[in-house]
Design a protein around this nucleic acid. Sequence first.
RNA 1: GCGCCUAUAGCUCAACCGGAUAGAGCAACGGCCUUCUAAGCCGUAGGUUGCAGGUUCGAGUCCUGCUGGGCGUGCCA
Length: 561
Amino acid sequence: MKETILALLTAALDALKERGTLPADVAPDIKIEATKDKAHGDYATNLALMLSKPAGLKPRELAQALIDALPESQAISQVDIAGPGFINFFANTEAAAEIIRTVLDEGERFGHNTQGNDEAVQVEFVSANPTGPLHVGHGRGAAIGDSLCRLLAVNGYDVTREFYYNDAGAQIDNLALSVAARVKGLEPSDPAWPQDGYRGEYIKDVARAYLNGETVKAGDRETTAKGDRDDIQAIREFAVAYLRREQDLDLRAFGVEFDVYFLESSLYRDGKVEATVERLIDNGYTYESDGALWLKTTEFGDDKDRVMRKREGGYTYFLPDVAYHHDKWNRGFKTVINEQGADHHSTITRVRAGLQALETGIPEGFPEYVLHQMVLVTRSGVEVKISKRAGSYVTLRDLIDEVGRDATRYFLIARAATSQMTFDIDLARSQTNDNPVYYIQYAHARVCSVLRKAEREGVQFDQARGLAQLSLLTEEREKDLMNRLAAYPELIARAARAREPYQVAQYLQELAGEFHSYYNAVKVMVEDDALRDARLTLGVAVRQVLANGLGILGVSAPEEM
RNA sequence: GCGCCUAUAGCUCAACCGGAUAGAGCAACGGCCUUCUAAGCCGUAGGUUGCAGGUUCGAGUCCUGCUGGGCGUGCCA
């Protein structure tokens, strides 16, 4: 419908240019939007407002001239000028109903597009250190990252999901020391307990498994515990494998799987860290000071230079990060999106600066970032502290177990990543209708329910007959639903461009709301076969779009509740 | 101090590249189940969009300054 209006307006513009009403060189970006208020018709454009200056006409006069120049169309029943000069279009109901045919023809592919042109895009998300169970913040990252991947895929991108394990840094040393202490029977309260050691109970579990000689499988490797209390290297390897496995299990339970698990240690093993350092030195962007090697990140917009090789010889985290992102680029990804917590935002400037300093033709904005803000968890109205080091925090596993996978995912994704959010455990786990995910799922189940009822009562539902009778759908709420369905494809495109999967959740809530409203106001199972089939057909189309959208969120679409 | 994010109804959040009367849910109040699942619907009430300027035909949205909150500002990640 929008395309139709766009074509009409383009034709009108050309006519006015020919007539000299408009300068020939104006090439406006014609914006057509769905109206918020039905009094303004179904679609509106501000074209006359935008062009009033170059045309030298008052907006309303120009609007009238545009309307006069519009070609005839069956799809439009009425065109008005309103307000300061908006042009409002009223869609012909029969033409609007064509969207139902489109939805049913395209099925689960409805809303897909080829925007991405099969471009390879990599999304890195979660990337938790293997030093403890995933917490709710990782859950938010997992939900947003995974949905973003699904969203990009339906927009025609070839998506790779990647998880980066920092398995080589100081925090892993700390983990090994903590497990070693537990292996020796120490408690965090003990004076000999390592400084800044991980105090969580899970460390005890790791130690016990290590002493028991357990074998754990993480990624494509199996690691068997040596059981030797003094072999810190063996303890380290086992602890990392153990916690990686834990995280993998949690993610799987959350419906999130990765294509690539990338280990930081492999960058050292393959010499990529060294190669990166050498190249940075060769390019003249480094200097020694205080016994450390610095990178001149200030030449690329940072507010101070950063240490890349410590006085004691090891590298800071950001150097392997640069090597890692260079590797992503070398793997052929021109678009890389990193989804991570906003507490890591300071890495953005550094990583990009390091990549620029390599001078290998990587664009300045590489990689892209989607940052999510903190999640505040409350229980009984009291904040639950999230602190990995303190060991007391709400894990993703807790949430999945208590709240359920669907509700947890929906809850974590339904808000813009930039907004700090409160995860109220009591609210989210309550079995009442407080959680909006049920609202959407229920709309889907309702359509299924009506179809079951039709079958139970021996009423033949004939979709072909329904499609032939779409002109019977004359109720205002039916038109609302059609317009809403018609808006889905552009929503999908817009959400992908903005890297904002939460928009899909927003849309689904609106669609479900309009369906529930319709369902209560208009009876579907009427005597009239043709009308009943037409309404059932509309219902099936709504169900299809709900299912498609829920699929992008990674939330199930149940047939009954 | 500096950098990033943020401030919208009592609470949690929306508002599509700047558009028309700022919308939902929860909480409150009043209605709707002998009719397709009431996990639903209908209605009432609730707002100086943190404050002050500016740009614009038009600002919650863009710019500047201020105030409050979060995060960062490690030779941690």
